[in-house]
């Protein structure tokens, strides 16, 4: 294991801003794994830390195959984590909206450029990331439909789902999108949690990454193969939206199977306590995403469901 500083900026009063990477093996740039870009993505750092730990052992045991270099960057944004702010401390910009970056640009553009230059030539790119809405996910691999995406390859993770995301204008500045444009096979990996540690889904993610690398002959790792992934287009997902705002009382959890008409959640009048709305499953389906905050706004997609195959 070689620890190295990928990118560094001097600060006026804080310790230097550093992006730290861990390299394993030697040879072609095979795999790059990236953790958090935002300050609340703690689970994402945790998963990477556990992966670093595993690779350290695999390397000592000679189980990283010759000719492959692996780079793990647990955090692209320690500054935001340390002050518990989601985006960049001074100007509130999102590093994951700055790729491929610009060396002569503003601070976060420089960080993106400085990191991307070091990771753009890897064959496989994996990023642990989060959704902009608060909630829990069924673990999955997400790929953007850029025309470069390779669904068969994504199945090698053995995650329960592969979600194909139809790109929107603002997606073009994410790491995942730019990796794909630079011909890296890019995968975004979502575990259940973001700002809390969820060990079960973290372990599933670690096993998935190692399973993938074993199937691609990069590491020697043996475990069960995981799931036969179901591929879902994000447009086919069923969003269950609140009509009313209020206190959110969830009844079902991610991964639950629900039948048509089954209550999913109640919205409670915040002062008077009665139920103002009960959300029901519109189809027989599986809960893929569930809101997990105590309040909800109106028109909010508090559940995303995947229809069960008939």
């Amino acid at each position: 294991m070689r620890k190295k500083v990928i990118y560094e900026i001097k600060s006026l009063y804080r310790d230097n801003f550093r992006v730290t990477g861990y390299e394993f093996g030697e040879g072609e740039e095979s795999v790059c794994i990236v953790g958090n870009t935002r300050g609340n993505e703690i689970q994402q750092i945790y998963v990477c830390s556990q992966i670093v730990n595993r690779f350290k052992r695999l390397e000592e045991e000679g189980k990283i195959r010759e000719g492959h270099k692996i780079l793990v960057i647990p955090s692209i944004n320690p500054y935001s984590v340390n002050i518990q702010k989601r985006f960049w401390p001074t100007d509130n910009t999102d590093i994951n909206r700055m790729f491929p970056g610009y060396h002569l640009g503003e601070t976060t553009q420089r960080i993106a450029a400085g990191v991307f230059e070091n990771i753009k030539n890897y064959k496989y790119g994996m990023q642990f990331t989060s959704f902009y809405m608060p909630g829990k996910f069924t673990p999955h691999v997400r790929m953007m439909k850029t025309g470069f995406e390779d669904v068969e390859l994504a199945k090698k993770f053995g995650m329960p789902y592969i979600i194909l995301r139809n790109t929107r204008p603002y997606d073009t500045t994410t790491l995942n999108y730019n990796w794909q444009i630079w011909e890296t096979n890019a995968f975004s990996i979502y575990t259940t949690a973001t700002n809390v540690i969820d060990k079960a889904s973290a372990n599933m993610a670690i096993r998935s990454v190692l399973t993938f690398l074993n199937k691609e002959d990069i590491v020697d790792y043996h475990s069960h193969d995981g799931y036969i992934s179901e591929v879902v287009d994000d447009r086919d997902m069923i969003s269950v939206r609140t009509k009313k705002a209020g206190i959110f009382e969830g009844i079902v959890n991610v991964g639950d199977e629900v039948i048509k008409g089954q209550p999913l959640a109640n919205i409670i009048a915040p002062y008077e306590g009665h139920i103002v709305e009960t959300l029901e499953a519109p189809e027989d389906s599986i809960v893929f995403f569930a809101h997990d905050e105590p309040i909800t706004y109106a028109n909010t997609a508090v559940y995303k469901l995947i229809q069960r195959e008939k």
């Binding site: 989601r86 985006f87 509130n92 902009y132 939206r241 028109n299 909010t300």
Partner: peptide, 26 residues
């Protein structure tokens, strides 16, 4: 707050919006 509080979204990246979308898109 520059963006929409709670959502941490830049409102000027949400247009043309969506009547069936979330509160901000709506």
């Amino acid at each position: 707050t520059r963006g929409i509080p709670a959502f941490d979204l830049d409102m000027n990246r949400l247009f043309p919006g969506n009547k069936d979308g979330d509160m901000t898109e709506y």
